[in-house]
Design a protein around this nucleic acid. Sequence first.
DNA 1: TGCCATT
Length: 483
Amino acid sequence: MATLTNGQVDAVVHGGAASTNGLVNGISHTHSPASCATIPMKDHDAIKLFIGQIPRNLDEKDLRPLFEEFGKIYELTVLKDRFTGMHKGCAFLTYCARESALKAQTALHEQKTLPGMNRPIQVKPADSESRGEDRKLFVGMLNKQQCEDDVRRLFESFGSIEECTILRGPDGNSKGCAFVKYSTHAEAQAAISTLHGSQTMPGASSSLVVKFADTDKERTIRRMQQMAGQMGIFNPMALQFGAYGAYAQVQQQAALMASVGQGGYLSPMAAFAAAQMQHMATINGLPGAPMTPTSGGSTPPGITAPTVTSIPSPISVNGFTGLPPPQANGQPPAEAMFTNGIHPYPAQSPTAADPLQQAYAGVQQYAAFPAAYGQISQAFPQPPPIIPQQQREGPEGCNLFIYHLPQEFGDGELMQMFLPFGNVISSKVFVDRATNQSKCFGFVSFDNPGSAQAAIQSMNGFQIGMKRLKVQLKRPKDANRPY
DNA sequence: TGCCATT
């Protein structure tokens, strides 16, 4: 049986030195008490419980007595952060007997509050038990004053609500978002159709967001993306790598979008992006095998961009393609990578650290970006002749103003970012002349207004690290000048 | 975070 492997699993204390893996299949589920006492076994229909609102100073051995009174425990695992080992305030619990789980849920769920917690303990089947994700909604842009009952009232007409939870910060204040789980996918879909964007709550910055909650995969991607954002800002390697780090985040975002709606493995693009993340995470140096090192500029292999200029860092984006390889050459499927240090997020998100991200994801129109990159990918064998011209400005309606560029982006990176949308005839990042630092804004000009509009559609609001690009038509020169 | 082809 697949069990979480992070953290210590002290599931087998009763069994002495017995093996730690679950030898449960194929053996009769009518366990006798005697056998359970020596080799832990569980019913074939045992329920894995999610335990929430656990004080972080309690570990498995502290929790065990609390739950043992409802039956013999097959496995109890406190969830820990993959990287820091930090207690996440929740656990998974499986009893040998299904009946014990039901008893514990009835007796404990929301029935008592453990010391130091401001919300009652949660004891309920883990999301992994119910395939809950296709009927679980993320609701964003709520009024922070709205409580569970308010949200229930808003959603109850679409079906039967199994679960409704407002996400709250440590102080107990609402984060302005919630999870709502229906009993069926159709009910959830109906709620999305009617409620998403239907109204703006007082005090909310945008209209109500109603979307399916992230799957594990999406959450993993998001998590990596956030990590990349942190590294882009705090990791001195980012300086060495120039735009590499920041650009990888663009990839990341593209991957996230590309992976939405695909079952099974992540797309090659997502795999590629995840591989990039691994490079960053391990700080191994320059990108490895799948990427073809180039010798001079920042030009990605396969894209002919002869006059990409002025990449400040000596290493900068050399060897970084900026785009996935034409085929998924030797790319391991995502699952393979996950066994190599990066694991899917646990089946249930205890605190949902990224409600804002989810909310924004619902607000935005992500679709066009991967589409554009898809076209470019297919064009790899015969790359379009993209020859930037000398002129700085295109015709009216072709010139974009871009704000919130990553600090390390130069003209070249800016151009690469907008190449998928058309012929870029110039790209310019503004640099402070005293410090030589980017002012984080710049201009991109296309040779036609359609490309400019496509770029706005896809890239405005696009998240890179902690920032979101602002992409607008450049103000005409005579704006605000009536004469 | 902070706003339009720079000195």
